[in-house]
């Protein structure tokens, strides 16, 4: 598992941890049933605080990517990753729908939206 943390990034550290674990799961590098390090062990390995790591795990659990079995550990959820992806797609669709309806009201064209989308996508990759 790779987790790279940037202290200079504006993105909260717990989000960085969360997104990278999520990415490992979605790209199937972490498979359903795989055990994750404990919150404290991960905090130590990353050199970050326990609460930061805990917050990342809480979010991942809430979104269904991982499950904690008390006194045993934290595992990648058996829930179908495709289903999670589908959920995410629906979420994205809804947000894009909203964007489109706002665009139509103000007369913004599809090309404008596309270019906004491209610019933001690139920005986000930086």
């Amino acid at each position: 598992m790779n987790i790279i943390i940037s202290n200079s990034s504006d993105k909260p550290i717990y989000k960085q941890v969360k997104e990278q674990i999520k990415n490992e799961i979605i790209t199937n590098r972490l498979k359903p049933g795989d055990q994750l390090p404990s919150i404290r062990a991960l905090a130590k390995d990353l050199g970050i605080s326990v609460i930061t790591t805990k917050n990342a795990y809480i979010d991942l659990e809430r979104e269904g990517y991982i499950e904690t079995i008390p006194a045993k550990g934290t595992y990648v959820s058996n829930k179908n990753i495709e289903l999670i992806k589908e959920d995410q797609f629906k979420k994205i669709e809804r947000l894009i729908e909203t964007s489109i309806s706002i665009a139509k009201i103000c007369g913004i064209t599809k090309e404008d939206i596309n270019s906004i989308f491209n610019i933001l996508w690139e920005d986000n990759n930086e």
Binding site: I48, I51, N55
Partner: peptide, 22 residues
């Protein structure tokens, strides 16, 4: 900044802030 979970600030003998670091 890296390892603490909570931060307590003291100034002139008074605690002025006590908060989760994140």
């Amino acid at each position: 900044e890296t390892v603490a979970d909570y931060i307590v600030f003291i100034n002139k003998g008074e605690i002025i802030l006590s908060e989760e670091k994140d």
